[in-house]
Simulated assay, not measured.
Amino acid sequence: MIRPAPLTLPDGPVLVVAPHPDDETLGCGGLIAAAVARGLATHVLFVTDGGASHPGSRAWPRARLARRREAEAEEALRRLGAGGAPRTFLRLPDAGMPPRGSPAHAEALGTVTRLVRDLGPALVLLPWRRDPHRDHRDAWALATEALARAPARPEVLEYAIWLDELGAPEDHPAATEMEPVSLRVSPEVKRGALRAHASQLGLLVEDDPTGFVLGPATIDRLTGPEEIYWRPCER
């Protein structure tokens, strides 16, 4: 990969789209902290409820886990300095977002469209369009459709969570498709915020050994001193 160009934050509002609670910290935690520190209006949109991470747990059934994950997201934002920043929880089903054309999809699209209209973001952070997780791709499609209805087009950057670990060759950006940009961030701040997501770190659910747990390699890769984003190449 070519050396990323440095990212300069805009002067206007920032919208972060997170497919699940914890993606906001893993993908954009440093940027959220930097934007809030600069006094930029910063809004985080959580698309799914995150309730499917431990389907075998009896102590943490889906509805209870979803509530817990929402609370973890609130605490992570607080630790990023964004405790007072607005956020929206769509609460769509984790690992089962409604298909395009369904009433639930239309409702979600309307909510995101109004959010974009009211916020008027100068910068939008989306999950990478071909990140190898269905919710990440579906969240990208939902937000992209809403942005297409906006009266003004903000700058859009995309962040990958699982691409390097699970992506097929065709999932990666083509050289003429996207260009990387980077932001220097504080690993300590990101790791502190990530610790709020105890359910995803193996620190909460004890009765589902097959449930999802963020591994050390993933954490190290996504909480370093640099966040990488992808910007569409100019055509």
Rank of each mutant, 00 (worst) to 15 (best):
P6M: 04
P6I: 01
P10V: 10
L15C: 01
V16N: 09
V16L: 12
A18R: 05
H20V: 10
T25P: 04
G29V: 06
L31S: 01
A33I: 02
A33Y: 06
V36D: 12
H43I: 09
H43D: 09
V44D: 04
T48V: 10
D49F: 11
D49L: 10
S53F: 12
P55I: 13
G56K: 07
W60E: 05
R64M: 02
A66C: 06
A66L: 07
R68W: 03
A71I: 00
E72D: 07
R78E: 13
R79F: 09
L80R: 10
G81Y: 08
A85I: 07
P86W: 05
R87T: 04
L90A: 11
L90W: 02
A95T: 15
G96Q: 13
M97E: 14
R100D: 14
R100N: 00
S102K: 08
P103T: 05
P103W: 01
E107T: 05
A108M: 09
G110C: 13
P121Q: 11
L125A: 09
L126A: 01
W128A: 11
D131I: 03
P132C: 12
R134A: 14
R134D: 14
H136Y: 02
R137V: 15
D138S: 14
A139I: 05
W140K: 00
A143M: 00
A143E: 05
A143S: 05
E145M: 07
L147A: 00
A148Q: 12
A150N: 11
E155Q: 09
V156K: 10
A160D: 00
A160Q: 06
W162M: 10
L163G: 13
D164W: 07
D164I: 00
L166T: 07
E170Y: 06
E170M: 01
D171C: 09
H172D: 01
A174F: 13
A174G: 15
T176D: 15
E177V: 11
M178A: 15
E179V: 15
S182M: 07
L183I: 03
R184S: 13
P187R: 04
P187W: 06
V189R: 14
V189N: 08
R191C: 07
R191A: 08
L194S: 02
R195F: 01
A198R: 15
S199R: 05
L203D: 14
L204S: 00
V205A: 09
A217K: 11
T218I: 00
T218F: 06
D220K: 12
D220P: 02
R221A: 15
R221S: 13
P225L: 03
E227V: 03
W230L: 10
P232I: 03
P232C: 07
R235E: 14
